[in-house]
Simulated scan of single mutants.
Amino acid sequence: MPAPERIPPLLLKGELTVRGRIREASNAVLYCSLSYEGAEAACVYKPVAGERPLWDFPDGNLAQREVAAYEISEATGWGLIPPTVLRDGPYGEGMVQLWIEAQEPPTEPLLALIDPPEEEEPAEGWKAVALAEVGEGRTALLVHADSASLRRLAVLDAVINNGDRKGGHLLPAPDGRLYGIDHGVTFNTEDKLRTLLWGWAGEPLTAEAVEVLTRLETALAAGMPLAARMGELITAAELAALQARVRELLRTGLHPEPSGEWPSIPWPPV
């Protein structure tokens, strides 16, 4: 289990009451309230029973992968994923994650389309991703912000092998923090990285990222508590692949580039 001091008791022990369903999701995603010893909060509950089987994720369940992603996020010290636990609920065991109310509109946009696309590099503060069709035979250049928080998230996605980093999975909070959500399709043994955050592809990792990855490599070594925790949530082969990805990032010292074996951008992108 995660260290208790990192998880609000409200999330672990609170009474879970379903208030509605988020219908845009492909699996069962329930909006719930939590109540415990006078404290209340909102959360997302994804019961395992509501998951649709995926041919390329035959082992374990998506809820466990969401919790595993949170554990890795916490190990980096970046806190990029809201507090997340695996616990019982009205429809059985599932992932329960603290609800983060996104800032609308965000103080600083994270994604943008340059239409028509310019031949030169995007303006300072932006990183180019790819050309995108915007209808009527027109294309636009998809760009994302060149921000430290997004860059950390790009590193985390490379570590957990995130196959679905869409724009809608980026949550800028009113306090200025950035969170990522929806990490069910992660930790595959094959390279499945699909993301909108390719702007740093092939560029050197920051000194901060190298330091974080070095600590993470040690924490994931056999016999360490984090490695043991991952062994409870993902398979032995997936844990070995996770360790290998961290080593490879440290060996190259570079942000990964698209492999060319899979679509590099999720669909739909937002």
Rank of each mutant, 00 (worst) to 15 (best):
S73D: 08
K13N: 15
L86V: 10
N188W: 07
G137S: 05
P174E: 03
P116W: 07
T214F: 05
G14H: 13
A39G: 12
G92W: 02
G137T: 00
G38R: 08
L12R: 15
W55L: 13
A128E: 13
P204Q: 01
T214Y: 09
V85S: 09
W262D: 09
W267L: 10
P4I: 03
R229G: 08
K127V: 06
L170W: 02
L54A: 10
P9R: 12
A219E: 02
P172Q: 02
A201K: 05
K46P: 08
A3L: 05
V155R: 10
A68C: 04
G168R: 04
D115Q: 13
R19V: 13
E104C: 00
V246Y: 03
R229A: 11
A42C: 14
W198T: 08
Y45M: 13
H183C: 05
P174W: 06
Y91F: 07
A236P: 12
W126H: 06
A28Y: 14
L142M: 15
D59Y: 09
E257C: 11
T186M: 07
D115Y: 11
I81D: 02
G94K: 01
L196R: 07
Y70N: 02
V134P: 06
A130C: 10
P122I: 10
V210P: 03
E211G: 00
T107C: 07
